[in-house]
Nucleic acid binder design. Structure first.
Lengths: 339, 339
DNA sequence: GTTAGCACTCGAACATCGAGAGTGCTAACC
DNA sequence: GGTTAGCACTCTCGATGTTCGAGTGCTAAC
């Protein structure tokens, strides 16, 4: 990583300009716009070195240079300066979290996702909270008709999950009530991921005559726990269409198709490895999924209250305004933490 | 509409071929493939007439003809023969509704939407049931913490709606219970759209001391009733990208952007005017929204059980396989009615 | 009423060409 | 030794021209 100061400056200039223009950057442009005092020829020599070292790429002889993936990586790790958000953007964020009456988690997430895509002009991805980690609050079963009931599971975060289950005909309203009361009593205050094992061993013994009915209850709990059950929220999916690198329908298509496969997206986001300042940046092929290997993903885990609940991310082209995106994400995460 | 039999045949041929190939159809092609026994010259004369009458369009001198909107309209009204679905497709439909354990309305709709887009290769739109029309089943309020509670509203269709509401500190658990029991008693068996007025006049009087709390309850009911609260489900949104008429990013973009605006889509679907066989076809500019004026929408209302609950539709290019789409929709609607 | 023949039109595909941008290299300069 | 000017070279892009094929409209003959 021993780049001379001037090389760093040039790399930075190439990235800055390319991020803005999406056009290969030539030596003249840099000399004129970023390195007053040096001639294009000098820049050319330096750029040739940078290319050999892998930081820059020439699409063809005699076009300017564009940053390579290694170049971007070096930039975000070493060169990028923290940019502060413009007041206007800060105000927008503030407004969303202060003005709106956001009580429900889902609403908060939905607004956040819209906000992210609005501020960055890229696509936002948010992985919802893990039910697993939140504490059990209450369970309720409401009869719907003779053979079906609605099972409602409430977590203390205000997170709600419901499912229609079959009830045995033989179950009287009174019995049902007793069972529900019992279940509530047993599970009070527990974290949801500790419940499954407890339930299986103990409650089943106590209520063995209603096993069939309980199976469904367990199923709901089990489903809620399954990793891929975590919901993914998207915002600004059409923003990628504004990027010139997605001028060709094929790429757009594969990306949009990916956006419909929430389980894959959840995978992409479900990385607990925190980076510097809590923000993780995955550039190009550093992402696992083939469809996003021309994209970069900037993400961070967020908290609502005390616990880490999920991941928010912004997906844009590798030629992305990293500094601003990081700033936006940090700002938003900090607001979320205060709710 | 007094087209000669031969003109009808030619119009039909043009449409059939154009639907398949997306290329303007020439007189030679028709003579060879559809009208054995007539020469291209004859066909040309007839086509010239059809063009003058508005049924066909020439993109430029010396390309073949393509059907105009009027042509399509005439075709679906007069010429289109009912096509029966292939056994394979029928089997797929059957499988979805018989094999799967579909208990919840939302699940049913989600599967239906996937099914429609799979079978047609177009985009499917489904307007969810109107809560308004279903009967009230039960209302429940579960405390979440000291000042908030979860209000759950269940309709007899198994439809559930929940919202976090503020509870006054002063309200004891006991009082809350009494209120809930009372509300349930008063609203038992009523259709939801009759509730609002009843509540406002009567219940408020009985429970005047808890008015602030009830306001929130009313709000939830009110929200549920608002027309634009009806959920729209989409399937196969990326299917349009397969259509050659959407080769250009601009069109794709405006259409995809529209897909994110569910309230507009709901408008598009919320047309209770039934057509022949219950299927309504809107071609091109017959649709209100500008974004879909190069598209056609085939839709029908569907029932779940006895009542009409919503609309399902398929959106494709005007050059759409109308016969098959209509057949698919009819088949699906009939299955839904039997659930 | 139908058809064959023919001139005509238009767009798609392809080649050609020049302009412009940018490079790499060399030699001169400080 | 680092820096720069000069220059030949390369490559893309857009404009231009050309050809080819598909399809038409019209006329005259059947």
């Amino acid at each position: 990583m021993g780049l001379s100061a001037r090389k760093k400056q040039i790399l930075q200039a190439v990235i800055t300009d390319y991020v803005k223009s999406a056009q290969p950057v030539g030596s003249r442009t840099i000399a004129r716009r970023y390195m007053v005092g040096l001639s294009p020829a000098t820049i050319r020599n330096e750029m040739a070195d940078l290319e050999e070292a892998g930081y820059l790429i020439q699409p063809h002889t005699s076009a300017g240079r564009i940053p390579s993936q290694i170049g971007y990586r070096y930039y975000v790790d070493q060169l990028m300066e923290k940019s502060d958000l413009e007041d206007e953007d800060k105000a927008k964020i503030k407004q969303v979290y202060e003005y709106e009456k956001l009580k429900e988690i889902e609403e908060i997430i939905r607004h956040t996702s819209r906000l992210l895509s609005l501020l960055t002009n890229y696509t936002s991805l948010i992985l919802g909270p893990q039910l697993k980690k939140s504490a059990f609050k209450k369970l309720q079963i409401m009869p719907v008709d003779h053979q079906r009931g609605l099972l409602i599971l409430v977590a203390d975060t205000g997170f709600v999950k419901n499912k229609v289950i079959n009830l045995p005909h033989t179950l009287s309203a009174n019995e049902l009530n007793r069972i529900v009361t019992y279940l509530n009593m047993r599970m009070e205050g527990l974290t949801i991921d500790t419940i499954t094992s407890k339930l299986i061993s103990e409650i089943r013994r106590d209520l063995y005559q209603h096993i069939k009915f309980l199976e469904d209850t367990f199923t709901l709990l089990g489903d809620s726990l399954a990793e891929d059950e975590r919901r993914v929220f998207l915002g600004g999916t059409t923003n990628i269409l504004n990027q010139p690198e997605f001028g060709d329908i094929g790429k757009v298509k594969s990306l949009l198709a990916l956006f419909e496969q929430h389980s894959l997206l959840a995978n992409l986001l479900a990385r607990p490895v925190a980076g510097v300042d809590g923000v993780i940046i995955k550039i190009g092929t550093e992402n696992i999924l083939e469809e996003v290997q021309e994209c970069s993903l900037v993400m961070a885990t967020y908290c609502l209250g005390k616990e880490v609940v999920g991941t928010i991310g912004v997906l844009g082209p590798t030629r992305m305004n990293y500094a601003k995106t990081v700033a936006v994400i940090q700002q938003v995460v900090s607001h979320l933490g205060r709710l």
